[in-house]
């Protein structure tokens, strides 16, 4: 029993890693007042970039860096459209997802080796392996926490740092104030446009790492739609964590856990058809969303940043 639970914990953390990166990224973006619904497309693009880079160069570092860059570039498009051009943020985000999905699929069929018809799927490349931490990794149950890949270890650090930065530094305060009330922040001398650009792009960078984790560590390789809606679950997780980076871990554990149980059930051969089993994360997202929304409506203290999704135009004042 203990080895089974240990393995479920291990898969949970591994499955949750990409979710935490992207959730924290999106929390920072949304805190500045920008809603980015392009996560799904950004994760797909960074996943294909990371895998293609790892395949052709054999360098994991370069793969992650390029995935980050791709995430940042797509976030920059969203920032330009929604901040400078004041486009509707929902539609802008959707178009990032549509574009990213299409381009990732195109690249996946084009960046592979000629011997495989330029296809990337079915290929294998260098990947992040699990590194067991000496001593700690042998502890029953808890050992699973210390038997992970490097990107997951990095997430353990990211969560407290992201929380500290947002709540305990001047920059974090500025970020939150821009998302709550851009007019006042502007009057106080903050550059609203610059801050929004900065955190939208920063968010894209973290989303990029999340995408890279999928194709380099969690399910190494490239398959079309490798994300399977994770980019959307992330949007729900941001609401679930009430825009607080330290709570991003809860949602990731919940959804990583669902993934892990699914994985285990499938491996052990259950009678439930896999299609119905695979519905679990999506049904859970709706349930969680309903519960959190109802709960939040009774607690007026928490809620989305007041200026989320609205563009700020100085000339309109």
């Amino acid at each position: 029993m203990i080895p089974l639970i240990t393995s479920i914990i291990a898969i949970t953390l591994s499955a949750g890693t990409s979710l935490v990166y992207a959730t924290i990224g999106e929390i920072y973006t949304e805190r500045s007042g920008i809603l980015n619904l392009g996560i799904e497309g950004m994760m797909l693009m960074s996943a294909v970039t990371a895998f293609a880079t790892a395949f052709h160069t054999g360098s994991l570092l370069l793969a992650v860096l390029l995935a980050m860059l791709v995430g940042m570039l797509l976030a920059l498009i969203h920032a330009f459209l929604s901040i400078t051009m004041r486009a509707n943020q929902v539609v802008s985000g959707l178009s990032i997802t549509l574009f990213g999905t299409g381009l990732a699929s195109f690249l996946g069929q084009r960046l592979g080796p000629e011997s495989n018809g330029f296809n990337l799927s079915g290929m294998s490349a260098v990947k992040f392996n699990r590194l067991q931490i000496e001593g700690l990794g042998d502890i029953p149950l808890l050992g699973a926490v210390f038997n992970q890949d490097p990107l997951t270890y990095l997430v353990y650090l990211l969560i407290p740092v992201a929380w500290y930065f947002m709540y305990k530094t001047k920059f974090g305060l500025n970020l939150r104030s821009v998302g709550e009330n851009p007019q006042t922040s502007d009057a106080m001398g903050l550059n609203v446009t610059k801050i929004r650009y900065l955190y939208t792009i920063f968010g894209g960078m973290l989303v990029g790492i999340g995408g890279a984790h999928l194709s380099l560590a969690y399910t190494p390789g490239w398959t079309e739609n490798i994300t399977g809606g994770r980019g959307w679950i992330v949007i729900a997780l941001v609401i679930f964590s009430m825009w607080n980076p330290s709570r991003a871990i809860l949602g990731a554990i919940l959804f990583g856990g669902i993934n892990a149980v699914q994985f285990r059930l499938q491996a052990s051969g259950t009678d439930i058809p896999s299609a119905y089993l695979n519905m679990a994360p999506y049904v859970a997202t709706i349930l969680v969303l309903v519960l959190v929304t109802v709960w939040e409506s009774h607690n007026r203290k928490v809620g989305p940043p007041a200026a989320l999704g609205t563009s700020y135009m100085r000339e309109d004042k």
């Binding site: 051009m85 004041r86 574009f99 299409g102 699929s105």
Partner: peptide, 19 residues
């Protein structure tokens, strides 16, 4: 997926131009 790339690309200038 060419067709999808073309489609996905259309909304960017469209959104920018709507301003």
């Amino acid at each position: 997926a060419m067709g999808l790339v073309l489609q996905g690309m259309i909304l960017f200038p469209m959104l920018a131009g709507s301003l």
